[in-house]
Amino acid sequence: MKASGLQKNILTMALLLIIAVLLINGLRLEHEDKRESSLHEYYLETYEDAGSVNLVETILLNYRAYDTFGEVMVLYIAVAGILILGEEEKEGEKR
């Protein structure tokens, strides 16, 4: 399908437009839900219990330590994967 330069541009423009509309709608809905949700009030009320001044750090390591654990695991798997994939020449002459 030999599309000329112009057709390609129009195609990409249309595609980007659709993606933009979807994103903006998504963000708009996301914003509305936030107002009713009381999670941030809960954070603000009880973050003294964690004993730290830095709310972001408290959320990251205390309220949502499970997510941070997932993040640590993702990083670990990434590093381990690269090192494992690159292992083969070690077997060759070094050992």
Binding site: D49, A50, G51, S52, E57, T58, L61, N62
Partner: peptide, 10 residues
């Protein structure tokens, strides 16, 4: 949080 009041865990 094993030490609720103090940031030890953090």
């Amino acid at each position: 949080n094993l030490w609720p009041r103090s940031p030890v865990m953090l």
